[in-house]
Amino acid sequence: MPRIAITVDGIKHEEDVEPRLLLVHLLRDRLGRTGTPVGCDTTNCGACTVMLDGRSVKSCSVLAVQADGCDVVTIEGLGANGSLHPMQQAFHEEHALQCGYCTPGMVMAAIDLLRDDPDPSEETIRRGLEGNLCRCTGYCNIVRAVRRGAQEMGQAVRTP
């Protein structure tokens, strides 16, 4: 069984894994990071989106062995010192979640899309979230939240 080293939300782990073990199951079943849920088996829903070396990926479609040596950030590793990340806060303010199942992946995808465009238009946001499905919100408030989160994050950068 391959042995992998992986950092998850700042904690280093070494794990012996079956080659077929999916990253999301490593996170959930082995490391207890159950904040990242699974919503489909075809890379469509995006609920399982995490950051892998700083880029959004769908953790149901990455093998744990492929993440050997990598740095993973999940929804549980976003906030610092018990406070919410500005994007999490923006989702709260704009009522951008209802059942909350898509939320971890949606927040990750939202943060990722700001890497390319820190001040995205509505269309850019909608396109940037095309790989993350939500069944509750109709997306309107998610789009607003991402815009708000972008402003907050921009502010955070500008005011050291």
Partner: peptide
């Protein structure tokens, strides 16, 4: 919201 936003969920 808070639990759902931080992944401290009980699915």
């Amino acid at each position: 919201d808070r639990r759902l936003l931080t992944g401290h969920t009980r699915w």
